[in-house]
Amino acid sequence: MPEAIVKTRNLTYEYIRRDAEGNPEGVTTAVDHLSLDIAPGAFVAIVGRNGSGKSTFARHLNALLVPEESAVWINGMDTREEEKHLDIRMTAGMVFQNPDNQIIGQVVEEDIAFGPENMGVPTEEIRLRVDEALQLLKLEKKRLDSPNRLSGGQKQRVSIAGVLAMRPRCIVLDEPTAMLDPQGRAEVIRTAHRLNRKEGITVILITHHMEEAVDADHIIVLDKGKIAMQGSPREVFARVEELRALRLSVPQVTYLAYLLRRKGLALPDAILTVEELVEALTV
């Protein structure tokens, strides 16, 4: 197995809760001794309820948060070494939840160029990268538009393009669909899969919509900063009761199959699509 692109050992992040007057009330452990390895080229979904620590975890992958005692390595680089931060951010790009709060440029292509500009990439090379990103994200026609005129899904594609222009090996998407409508959500998830498949970019998708994790290679369910379960989608989706207890849900068809199984119908484990269920019931 090639060296992990993301590797964490006992990653722990604690912060002090304060009351209204600013007096410390207690310590919250957002990430709790998390150890995991993500192989290059994988599509990993990290799911968990709000407050499960998934976003805090994501921020460690981009050296936006740096652990004190435990460690995170991105492509072998230790995020505790400050002089590597730029390299780390070029290796693991990050897309955030609210598209409006991460687009800096007032024209689509100028925004996409922002990362490479900061990296000091020569102008001709920036042009090349921007064009490539526009093409990969199917945004050529929106090149000169103001981001304010785009739909939510398109804005998130601009955000992804902006990260892509930095030529990262890994993209971390931190709840990229939370503010989008179903079309926008589908658009973003499709895009993430395409980049993973065609460009071989490692994708780490953070979400609380289990439906979006159906096509991932591997799902990690976080709760209270710890791994509550992990495995292939089928393995995870088979545990309907546990997921509901973790304030998550399964797609309705999976839930229906689960209900039928519980009533004694002989069905395979963890049905993920309507087609599968119909086929299982008609043969």
Binding site: Q252, V253, L256, K263
Partner: peptide, 29 residues
């Protein structure tokens, strides 16, 4: 349409005697 509706509709089209107009997982079950 909800997945439950879709499942029942397809089963109905495949000749099973289920009502195609159910709308929730519990009804479909």
């Amino acid at each position: 349409v909800p997945a439950a509706t879709e499942v029942c509709r397809r089963l109905y089209e495949a000749g099973l005697r289920v009502r195609p107009d159910v709308t929730t997982a519990e009804e479909a079950c």
